[in-house]
Design a protein around this nucleic acid. Structure first.
Length: 461
RNA sequence: GCUCCCAUAGUGUAGACCGGCCAAUCAUUCUAGCCUUUCGAGCUAGGGACUCGGGUUCGAAUCCCGAUGGGAGCACCA
């Protein structure tokens, strides 16, 4: 089987379906998975993409056995173009493209369609020798000019491109077009199964003509449905432009739907795999559900995510009635073996609560500071320590999280581009690079830390 | 316009090929409760769907036809 990305940019969430599904088939039924870079249109090739795509696949845990660039196979396409012409299954056409298309629409043969094969081969050799200008001539594969579907009638297979290719420069100027190179490569590389999106349905029909012309055995073609992904920027061209003008920090900007961004945000590759396995290969058009992906992600990351306190919109309170308090909280209540995080309040008896918790506290009421102790509300600024008896919870005391004075400024960047500022407990510094759960807030990827504090990306609830 | 693909709960998905065991599966979401020093996890209960109309049949989610709706292609892009 194969993955055939266009190296115009790195992979995004939409691309991961073909990667995961093909990989999953190979892992289940055996065989080889070839990554074939479809780089036969120089203007759209983004040189860095070759490497980025492989990194994305590695991150996704897609096991490919080989990477091939179509740009290394020009001679092969030339050879088969000549074979097709010689067999009378193609022709050299110098029609102006618009007129040619119109004739096809009307099921009319163009004047070149019945040129003798030998003459065609002769013209083809002259084309290869660059005796023509781009657009002046092209090589066309015959299908059926009377095919009921106009989209299937005769298609251009080879054309000339002057723009240098990032990998091969101007050594080759005669480029194959998609349907031609794909049919040839799929056969030559021994594909038994071609699993791709439904948007290729008509391409499959066209490619089958090449198989028939060459008398090749066809692979099994499978087409899965269209996926609509909302609320996410995916367009490679748009992203590229926005990175260039500084609007996005890079391909892994957490607002984007690229694989790199999801990785940086703390989405586990296993969640993406599970999601696509769940969706399967049906030909129905579906809406991508971030919600479902997040649910699967939560399942995976929950076990490894340490629990930490993060206080957004902090409000300062002073604890009176005691000089020293020590908190020892489990890093993961479900997995006590992960250990604890310790906080000592001594001398400076301030704590910070989130504004939401700190609002409307009625004097006299008891509040439980999670894993620290119980306090009675004195007034807007002070809390009196009243012991550590958990039974207050049964009496209806509210429980809140908090951080002490010795904590770290933290900014959490949300996927919608907003960011939330707050304070995280100091232990967060020990988990930079990991996914943690900010209690009562959500899972975050602790991205980096410097003098200014911690930068985190919101993963999901 | 032409050609093609598709149609089960909010979102996905099983069942459809080989009609009955389907008053329709599972996941997620939602609601209520339990548990819990998180609004996380877990547990319990509940809500929620076969697009419509014909036909075949003793019997249709399943087969056939039509309508409607959604999507794709009609490039010297991939």
């Amino acid at each position: 089987m194969r993955l055939a990305p266009n190296p115009s940019g790195p992979l995004h969430i939409g691309h991961t379906r073909m990667a995961i599904l093909n990989d999953e088939y190979v892992k289940r039924y055996g065989g080889k998975l070839i990554v074939r870079m479809e780089d036969t249109n120089p203007p759209t090739v983004y040189p860095e993409a070759y490497e980025m795509i492989c990194q994305d696949l590695d991150w996704l845990e897609v096991k490919y056995h080989e990477v091939v660039n179509q740009s290394s196979r020009f001679e092969i396409y030339y050879e088969y173009a000549e074979k097709i012409l010689a067999a009378g299954h193609g022709y050299m056409c110098s029609c102006e493209s618009e007129g040619w298309r119109k004739m096809k629409d009307e099921s009319r043969e163009c004047p070149h369609r019945n040129t003798d094969p030998e003459v065609n081969v002769g013209i083809w050799k002259r084309m290869l020798a660059h005796e023509f200008q781009p657009h002046e001539i092209s090589m066309v594969v015959k299908t059926d000019i009377n095919h009921p579907n106009p989209a299937v009638r005769d298609f251009v297979a080879m054309r000339q491109v002057e723009e240098p290719h990032p990998l091969t420069g101007t050594k080759y100027k005669i480029y194959p077009l998609y349907n031609f190179s794909v049919a040839i490569d799929d056969h030559l590389m021994g594909m038994t199964h071609v699993l791709r999106g439904k948007d290729h349905l008509n391409n499959t029909i066209r490619q089958e003509y090449v198989y028939d012309h060459m008398d090749w055995k066809k692979p099994v073609f499978l087409h899965y449905g269209w996926v609509s992904i909302e609320d996410t920027v995916l367009s490679t061209r748009q992203i590229k432009a926005a990175i260039a003008n500084g609007e996005y920090s890079g391909w892994d900007d957490c607002r984007l739907g690229t694989v790199a961004a999801l990785a940086r945000r703390g989405i586990a590759p296993g969640a993406i795999r599970q999601y696509w396995k769940d969706v399967g290969t049906k030909a129905v058009d579906i809406r991508f559900s971030w919600e479902n992906l997040y649910a699967m992600n939560r399942d995976i990351i929950d076990a490894d995510a340490v629990r930490l306190f993060f206080v957004r919109d902090p409000v300062e309170k002073r604890i009176i009635g005691i000089d020293r308090l020590q908190s020892s909280a489990l890093l993961h209540p479900g997995l006590p073996d992960m250990g604890t995080r310790e906080v000592v309040l001594e001398g400076d008896m301030r704590v910070f609560l989130t504004a939401e918790d700190a609002e409307g506290l009625e004097p006299g009421k008891i509040l439980r500071l999670k894993d620290l102790g119980n306090v009675e509300i004195v007034d807007e600024h002070e809390l009196r320590y009243v012991g550590n008896d958990l039974n207050v919870l049964k009496k209806g005391a509210k429980i809140v999280h908090w951080v002490g004075p010795n904590s770290v400024e933290t900014t959490v960047h949300m996927p919608d581009g907003t960011s939330i500022a707050g304070i995280a407990e100091k232990a967060a510094l020990d988990y930079i690079g990991k996914v943690a759960q900010f209690e009562r807030f959500g899972f975050v990827k602790l991205d980096s830390a410097d003098g200014g504090g911690i930068v985190a990306f919101f993963t999901n609830k």
